[in-house]
Design a protein around this nucleic acid. Structure first.
Lengths: 192, 192
DNA sequence: GACTGGATACCGACTGGTTGGTACGTTTTT
DNA sequence: AAAAACGTACCAACCAGTCGGTATCCAGTC
């Protein structure tokens, strides 16, 4: 995770990986047939650990589905801080490099990102139904959350120091505002 | 451009570059001292060619600044189609890989992305002033446009075939809706 | 208009180090 | 005793970058 997030997938060599993990090359290739397989496993591990992390987060307790959705965004914003390597996404980083060269990695990263999106769909569906939002779907909005998150990481990488985290947080603020308006405005309209 | 967009920066070798360009390695290293210098030059070329392209686009003619901003988004949406390599961003792709290993490339990509954002700031400032939007700045909104664009490219890379372009276009649709609500709702509020 | 000298453009073989991956032996677990 | 885990030495291919040489251009000179 550490090496891929700071150097990218292809610039990270198997030798570096082994040195960082305190493992010999023989052991590495005993467990993974190729470097590509490690990439797939990394995406799957990332997927499993993040989905577990978000499932245990506190924002699920809100009664109002809109509060749950905004709570998720607030939670994501609170996670952003320090150097980019500390909050960026392994799947997003890998798929950018490997989408054409490795179908297996592409699919694993797709599963990670879309799986993360899927965890929001139920709350978004409730929010849409309750506030009578039209013209979009919970699936599309869930993807938009991921879009803004991934995009904020790209822009964060153009900065150095604290500016990275500040920029990423600022951008999630716009996502929050969009959802706030989308569900808030629809509510007012609904009450007329 | 072609090789970086489809294979990424570090997975693209100087030999491949030379073969693709029909140039020998001697010629390459005559013009660029290092591969990194080519990366910087690529970002600068990308920056110059895209800014020229957008400066000549038709959306500037609208009288209403909000129409100019939405026109920009529509223009970007119209550019999306075919394989991801055809519409993705060279600067966004490179900075993801090289932000830690090469400060020069990071800065060149920052200049490209932020320069593209800057081109929208005047219209956004006019729109904010005219509609009385509060709580954000033209700079922040301009960055948000780039965030959604870059994020949509990342998500597009998780898909294959036509689904890539469809997903990217769908996501720019949310950006359009956000701006539409932000400036539209503020207008109604303003007229009360 | 022919000649010259120096600068620039370009070529392609070469180098030292690195790459992902293998072969084969040894240790540890079951 | 068998199988899984792990270590070491090694390999061919490839990597960015170098180097000595050649071709081309152009300003100045006669």
């Amino acid at each position: 995770m550490k090496l891929v997030r700071s150097s990218g997938y292809s610039a990270t060599s198997v030798d570096q990986l082994c040195a960082e993990a305190g493992v010999t090359k023989g052991a590495f290739f005993h467990h993974f047939p190729t470097k590509e397989a490690l990439g797939v496993a990394a995406a799957e591990y990332w997927s499993a650990s993040t989905s577990g992390y978000f499932a245990a987060a506190p924002y699920h307790h809100h009664a109002d589905p809109v509060d749950r959705v905004l709570g998720y965004i607030d939670f994501r914003m609170a996670l952003i801080g320090g150097p980019v390597e500390g909050f960026s996404c392994v799947a997003g980083t890998m798929v950018q490099e490997a989408f054409r060269s490795s179908a297996a990695i592409r699919v694993a990263c797709e599963a990670s990102i879309m799986g993360n999106a899927k965890a929001l769909e139920a709350d978004l569906a409730d929010a849409i139904a309750q506030r009578g939002v039209r013209g979009t779907t919970p699936e599309s909005l869930a993807r938009h959350v991921q879009t803004v998150i991934q995009g904020s990481f790209v822009l964060a990488k153009t900065q150095n120091g604290d500016a990275s985290a500040d920029l990423a947080r600022e951008q999630l603020g716009h996502l929050r505002r969009y959802f706030s308006m989308l569900f808030g405005a629809a509510r007012e309209e609904n009450l007329q």
